[in-house]
């Protein structure tokens, strides 16, 4: 706070951003979506035990499995981006490092998501073995 500003001016700051709801809402909606998606993923992968490569590829190629794998990846990454943003906003200072951190975090998250989804698509839509 500037020494000569009144305490009220400091407390008001730049005023309300009039947003923040959608971030809060989407982090809750994605967490609800992740309950069935994560349960499906864990049990489905556990059930893969003993399967050979050809059977695994055939499993991934089923439209439902392809869709659920891509959704699991996309929703998880999106939920992670929302959560990491909150952590960076909470703890990282100064302001320039905070903003840079959020941008870099978004880039890396989207890269991870894109790689994962493209990998699933390559198996699912590729020429196959």
């Amino acid at each position: 706070m500037m020494a000569l500003r009144t305490p009220l001016a400091g407390a008001r700051g730049l005023g309300s951003a009039k947003s923040g709801f959608s971030h809060w809402w989407m982090s809750r909606v994605t967490s609800i979506a992740l309950v069935p998606l994560s349960l499906w993923f864990v049990f489905a992968v556990a059930a893969l035990g003993g399967m050979d490569y050809a059977a695994f590829v055939a499993w991934v190629r089923s439209p439902l499995v392809t869709a659920l794998l891509i959704l699991s990846l996309a929703v998880t990454i999106y939920h992670m981006m929302l959560g990491l943003r909150v952590i960076i906003e909470d703890y990282v200072r100064p302001e320039a490092l905070k903003v840079t951190g959020i941008i870099v975090m978004n880039f890396i998250s989207i890269l991870i998501g894109a790689l994962g989804i493209i990998a699933v698509l390559k198996i699912s839509l590729g020429a196959g073995s």
Binding site: G15, S16, A17, S19, G20, H23
Partner: peptide, 9 residues
């Protein structure tokens, strides 16, 4: 006035 990533969330 409250809907703000910092003031409330």
């Amino acid at each position: 006035e409250l809907e703000d990533p910092y003031k409330l969330y």
